[in-house]
Write a protein that binds this DNA or RNA. Structure first.
Length: 437
RNA sequence: GCGACCAUAGCUCAGUUGGUUAGAGCACAAGAUUGUGGAUCUUGGGGUCGCGGGUUCGAAUCCCGUUGGUCGCCCCA
């Protein structure tokens, strides 16, 4: 047992773990690139204030924060949103709209680890700045779907639940709740799926009892699972603002339907997201079959750039994590097996043959061919075993007999066929064999 | 911050009422095997039994503490 271990909630990535992580990153990056998002990165360590300004002082309990040697209050980043708001905000005047950015980065939260949640984890973040209309939501939800279906996950595997904090506030206002009460109700709604009726305890503690008729209306609104139901529920409260909002809803759902993605998305007002800074549409991605925590979440946050000192810039974004995604892919058998096979394994007869082999090995590698060879001289039998175990498609054999003729052997390890070729043709022959059938 | 369960080799685990030098399979390495394959056989390396203390003639085993893991609660950006 080693004397040192990684810190709680932090992971070592051994090659097979790293391979799985890279697979996840690769799908995310390909998806974002295909959607025209540009990649950025930012510091791991930020001023503590960046997060307390956004989320309040209570957040500090969940942060990896400390004082640096210059007596600055700093924190490892727990999320990307404030950082990207700062970056976009400070150059907003010069950036072409819409601003579509993504990042893949590691984040740190000082919390107890549990299933799907660690202290250090990776997230893909995608955000669109400068577009107030629902086209931004369409783009991001479509990207989120691609970031999951790119692994081979289908509509039976996951679901995007779409909700709207604006509509909730509108509805609660119509029921006579003031702003503070409405926020309390949203807090209860956020917990209702998990806790049932107990979710309202925090509300009644602060705002007093909630009469049954209004509570039933709230619970009824919560059950809405489609646009038609939504429109029917809101019909009694007709107003221009509401009509415009419902028009936004139709545009989002029609846009996604036109992309062929309707079956991935459901209207579901039970999703409100805990954070207060969301200002409109909010959405989460869920595993349909299992009991995993949310796969991804996001929404619109039109006030945050300004709150963090930037211009008034509408924004919408989402994040998806590597831990839950990895668990889901393992459960569904969609995580590819670790593969580190070279293209070519070179079998070397002995010290004299090694010199010729090394020259070709270096030339092949410089040309981009993955080449492996034994460091120490050993029996041919052992080397062929090693060649087979390496998973290489080809073996190049540098034996004394062949080299005496100025030749080497090229063996196809899959079908065990073998041919001799002049040593000068090794590079061309290897290339042809690798691209060939 | 709170709670439950767990901890023996790189991995999965065995280890009797507390009793000599803690074992197996897999993995790794060497050999059988100096010109052709993932097999087989033989051999080997690898352990402060998570750590610390206590009980005992004697602790992997019993007790206390602690650290870590897993899973919940709180929280979830």
């Amino acid at each position: 047992m080693a004397s040192f271990q990684s810190l709680p909630g932090f992971r070592d990535f051994y090659p097979e773990d790293f391979f799985r992580r890279q697979h996840i990153f690769r799908v995310w990056r390909q998806s974002a690139t295909a959607f025209g998002f540009q990649e950025y990165d930012a510091p791991v360590l930020e001023p503590l204030e960046l997060y307390t300004t956004k989320s309040g002082d209570e957040i500090e309990g969940q942060l990896f924060s400390f004082k640096d040697k210059g007596d600055r209050e700093v924190s490892l980043r727990p999320e990307m949103t404030p950082t990207v708001c700062r970056m976009v905000g400070s150059r907003a005047g010069a950036l072409k709209r819409p601003i579509k950015w993504f990042s893949i980065a590691e984040f740190y939260r000082y919390e107890r680890a549990q299933k799907g949640r660690l202290r250090a984890f990776n997230q893909f973040n995608a955000d669109i700045f400068g577009e107030a209309g629902p086209e931004a939501e369409i783009e991001l939800i479509a990207l989120l779907i691609q970031c999951l279906s790119g692994f081979g996950l289908a509509k039976d595997d996951f679901l995007i639940r779409l909700s709207d904090r604006d509509l909730w506030f509108f509805y609660l206002e119509a029921l006579g709740f003031n702003d503070s009460q409405a926020r309390g109700v949203l807090g209860a709604i956020d917990r209702y799926e998990k806790m049932g009726d107990g979710a309202f305890k925090a509300y009644t503690d602060v705002h007093g009892p909630l009469e049954d008729s209004r509570k039933q209306k709230i619970l009824g609104f919560l059950q809405i699972k489609g646009l038609a139901d939504l429109e029917a529920a809101l019909a009694p409260f007709g107003s221009e603002k509401l009509a415009a909002r419902l028009a936004d809803w139709r545009r989002v759902l029609e846009g996604l339907a036109a992309m062929g993605l309707a079956e991935f998305v459901s209207v579901d007002l039970a999703v409100v997201r805990g954070l207060a800074y969301y200002t409109g549409f909010v959405f989460e991605a869920f595993d349909r079959k299992g009991d995993l925590r949310a796969l991804a979440g996001g929404g619109r946050y039109n006030d945050l750039v300004k709150k963090l000192g930037g211009p008034d810039l509408p924004a919408v974004g989402f994040a998806i994590g590597d831990v839950t995604t990895g668990l889901l892919l393992e459960q569904r058998g969609l995580m590819p097996a670790f593969a580190a096979a070279p293209d070519v394994y070179v079998v070397i007869g002995g010290p004299a043959e090694r010199r010729a082999a090394l020259a070709d090995i270096q030339a092949l590698r410089a040309a981009g061919v993955r080449v492996e060879y034994p460091f120490k001289d050993s029996a041919f039998g052992k080397q062929f075993k090693a060649a087979a175990e390496s998973g290489a498609r080809l073996a190049l054999i540098y034996g004394g007999d062949e080299l005496a003729r100025g030749a080497v052997k090229l063996r196809n390890l899959a079908d065990r066929s073998e041919r001799e070729l002049p040593i000068a043709e090794v590079r061309a022959a290897v290339r042809a064999s690798l691209v060939g059938p």
